[in-house]
Computed example of a mutant assay.
Amino acid sequence: MIRGVVMPAPQAPLELREFERPALEPGAVLLETLASEVCGTDAHLWKGQLAGVPYPIIPGHVSVGRIAETNGARDVDGNALRDGQIVTFLDVYGTCGRCWYCTVAHATTRCPERKVYGVTLSSEDGLLGGWAEHIHLKPGVHIIPLPEELDWRAFMAGGCGMPTALHAVTLAEIAFGDTVVVQGAGPVGLCAAVLAQLRGAGQVIVIGGPAIRLEAARRFGADAVIDIAETTPEERLERVRERTGGRGADVTIEATGVPSAVPEGMRLTRDAGRYVVVGQYTDVGTATFNPHLDLNQKHLDVRGCWGSDVGHVYRSVRVMARYAAQFEWTDLITREYGLDEAQEALEDVAAQRVVKALIVP
Score class of each variant (00 low, 15 high):
7 M>D: 05
9 A>V: 00
9 A>D: 14
11 Q>T: 11
24 L>V: 13
28 A>F: 11
33 T>E: 11
47 K>P: 09
48 G>M: 03
54 P>V: 13
57 I>M: 05
58 I>K: 01
60 G>D: 01
64 V>Y: 03
74 R>K: 14
76 V>W: 07
77 D>P: 07
78 G>E: 07
79 N>R: 14
84 G>V: 01
84 G>K: 03
85 Q>C: 02
87 V>T: 00
99 C>G: 00
113 E>I: 03
113 E>R: 06
116 V>P: 00
119 V>Q: 02
123 S>W: 04
134 H>P: 01
138 K>N: 04
142 H>F: 03
142 H>N: 08
144 I>Q: 02
149 E>M: 01
159 G>S: 03
159 G>L: 02
166 L>F: 06
170 T>W: 03
173 E>Q: 15
175 A>F: 07
176 F>Q: 10
177 G>E: 04
181 V>F: 15
184 G>K: 05
190 L>V: 07
199 R>Y: 08
200 G>M: 09
201 A>F: 10
201 A>S: 14
202 G>N: 03
204 V>R: 06
204 V>K: 05
206 V>L: 13
219 R>W: 08
226 I>W: 08
227 D>C: 11
233 P>T: 13
238 E>F: 10
247 R>S: 11
247 R>K: 12
248 G>N: 09
250 D>P: 08
253 I>Y: 09
253 I>G: 01
253 I>N: 00
256 T>M: 09
258 V>D: 07
259 P>D: 03
263 P>S: 10
266 M>H: 07
276 V>Q: 07
276 V>I: 13
277 V>K: 03
277 V>I: 13
284 V>M: 10
285 G>I: 06
286 T>F: 07
288 T>C: 08
289 F>R: 04
292 H>L: 13
293 L>W: 08
299 H>Q: 12
301 D>H: 12
308 S>C: 09
314 Y>R: 15
316 S>G: 14
330 T>G: 07
334 T>Q: 10
338 G>D: 06
338 G>R: 11
341 E>F: 02
342 A>E: 04
344 E>S: 13
346 L>V: 05
347 E>P: 08
349 V>I: 10
351 A>R: 15
352 Q>Y: 11
352 Q>V: 12
